[in-house]
């Protein structure tokens, strides 16, 4: 069978729509995971609670020690059993969030460790504490130090969205499957999806590093 690029081109409009869904899934999943991870990081550091620290550590090792596909299925099938019917899309985003949060917590831990103790002390000596101390002084520096690994994690999430095709979320991968199960040209269609995924990831990491170097110039 000969590679016929016209099948790729014919698929492009629908692949593009699928890409938008993929991007939406990734953005939402990642955004929620950053919010969740930030809350956990602040709570864990500020409360100095041992129980919290252990729970987080256990959570992270569960997430890292099991396949994401299993986590996605679990969330998808468990939620309706406990009476929560939110549909595959929301379940998928939730699964991505829960998974990614574990990694973002680790990333933020590194970023937080790079903030010198003196930064906290200066803030506290000026009367900042609690919320203001974190929001005005510590978190901005934590995130600035975490930009490269966070961008990397976002591309991980973006690629992981393909797994959501297994729980019937109609994103780029599932759209591709729908197309080639009709035209029987999986290679051409998947090549299109392949390029789409690559372009999205490439655009994200390129614009991030541009942003970063611009920032460096501004501050250096």
């Amino acid at each position: 069978m000969k590679f016929d690029i016209s099948y790729t081109f014919d698929a492009l409009p629908r692949l593009f729509e699928g890409s938008l869904v993929t991007l939406t899934l990734a953005l939402l999943g990642f955004a929620f995971s950053v919010v969740l991870a930030t809350i956990v990081t602040v709570a864990r550091t500020a409360s100095k609670s041992r129980i919290l620290a252990y729970s987080v550590a256990i959570y992270i090792s569960f997430i890292r020690g099991t396949p994401l596909l299993v986590q996605i299925f679990l969330v998808f099938y468990v939620l309706p059993i406990v009476g929560i019917n939110i549909g595959p899309m929301s379940a998928g985003i939730l699964a991505l969030t829960l998974n990614s949060a574990a990694f973002v917590i680790e990333i933020l831990r590194g970023g937080l460790a790079s903030v010198p103790q003196g930064q906290f002390e200066a803030a506290r000596s000026l009367g900042l504490s609690g919320f203001a101390l974190w929001v005005k002084v510590v978190l901005p520096q934590t995130f600035m130090a975490s930009i490269p690994p966070l961008v990397n994690e976002f591309t991980q999430v973006l690629k992981a969205t393909a797994l959501l095709s297994t729980i019937t979320v109609v994103e780029l991968m599932r759209v591709s499957q729908q197309i080639y199960s009709n035209n029987y040209h999986p290679v051409e269609v998947l090549t299109g999806a392949f390029v789409m995924y690559f372009l999205m990831c490439f655009a994200v990491s390129r614009s991030a590093s541009l942003l970063e170097s611009k920032f460096e110039v501004k501050r250096a």
């Binding site: 010198p116 930064q119 000026l126």
Partner: peptide, 14 residues
């Protein structure tokens, strides 16, 4: 504390 300023050896500017 807001009325007691503190200056550190390592500056600790933000």
């Amino acid at each position: 504390r807001a009325r007691v300023g503190m200056v550190f050896q390592n500056f600790n500017v933000w």
